[in-house]
Amino acid sequence: MNGRIVIVDDEPITRMDIRGMLEAENYNVVAEAADGIEAIEVCKQHHPDLVIMDISMPLLDGLKASKKILAEKYAKAIILLTAYSDKENIEKAKKYGISGYLIKPIMEKSLTPMVEVAIATGTKTREYEVSLEKLTKKLSERKLIEKAKGIIMIEQNMSEDQAYQLLRDLSMNKRCPIAEIAEMFVVSDD
């Protein structure tokens, strides 16, 4: 299978047509939804690679649902479908991080390349987000360790190397990450 996809449209015929085109290209349609609220729920459950969603739907429109799905990382990418090409929706789509925008009626020759690119872009974006989260965590842990070293240096009258060695030794003896040990020194000093 080329990717896991959720189709969201209030028209069952449209969902059926899109499903047929996608399955012919070996994509796995994991769920369908008829409105934005259902879309959020099925994305929360399935975490698809891609959501193909109509903008104009009852209850919760596709733009608002997309914003929530992407913010919560329930899907890697979203392609919006619409019968109209209006600037306001395009601007909102860009602002929310939408990966593609197609005008109905959908043609297989335009859908398949858009799906392929959106899945690839969404996957790469998710990889960057995970890397950024790891780097941010490492940086905050490093800052915490540096702050703890400063506190230990002052309170214990130690050199920087001795303070760091104390943190390392405590980490090893307590079988606890050094950042957690450092946090204990910083919290107790606040």
Rank of each mutant, 00 (worst) to 15 (best):
M1C: 09
M1K: 14
N2D: 13
I5Q: 08
I7H: 04
I7Q: 00
I7S: 06
V8R: 13
V8K: 10
E11F: 02
M16N: 03
M16R: 13
D17N: 03
R19V: 07
G20N: 06
A24C: 01
N26I: 02
N28S: 12
V29S: 05
V30R: 03
V30H: 04
G36F: 00
G36E: 02
G36H: 09
A39L: 11
E41Q: 15
E41C: 05
V42H: 03
Q45V: 07
P48S: 05
P48C: 06
L50E: 04
I52A: 02
I52P: 11
M53K: 07
I55P: 14
I55S: 03
I55E: 01
S56H: 10
P58M: 06
P58L: 00
P58R: 11
G62K: 08
K64S: 15
A65G: 07
K68Y: 08
A71Y: 01
A75V: 02
I79P: 11
L80H: 03
L81P: 09
Y84C: 00
Y84T: 10
S85L: 14
S85F: 03
D86L: 14
D86W: 10
D86V: 15
D86S: 15
K87Q: 09
K87G: 04
E91W: 02
E91Y: 06
E91R: 13
E91Q: 09
S99P: 06
S99N: 14
G100I: 04
G100T: 00
G100S: 14
Y101I: 11
L102G: 05
K104H: 11
P105V: 14
S110C: 10
T112Q: 08
P113G: 13
M114E: 05
V115P: 02
V115C: 08
V115Q: 02
V115W: 07
E116P: 03
A120T: 13
T123S: 15
T123Q: 15
K124N: 01
K124Y: 05
E127D: 08
E127R: 10
V130F: 04
V130W: 07
L132H: 05
K134P: 03
K134Y: 00
T136H: 10
T136R: 13
S140A: 09
K143I: 12
K143F: 04
A148W: 01
A148H: 01
I152F: 01
I152Q: 04
M153E: 10
M158T: 14
S159L: 14
E160D: 12
Q162I: 03
A163D: 03
A163Y: 00
Q165P: 04
K174W: 02
K174I: 05
R175L: 06
I181V: 15
S188P: 08
S188Y: 14
D189V: 09
D190I: 12
D190V: 12
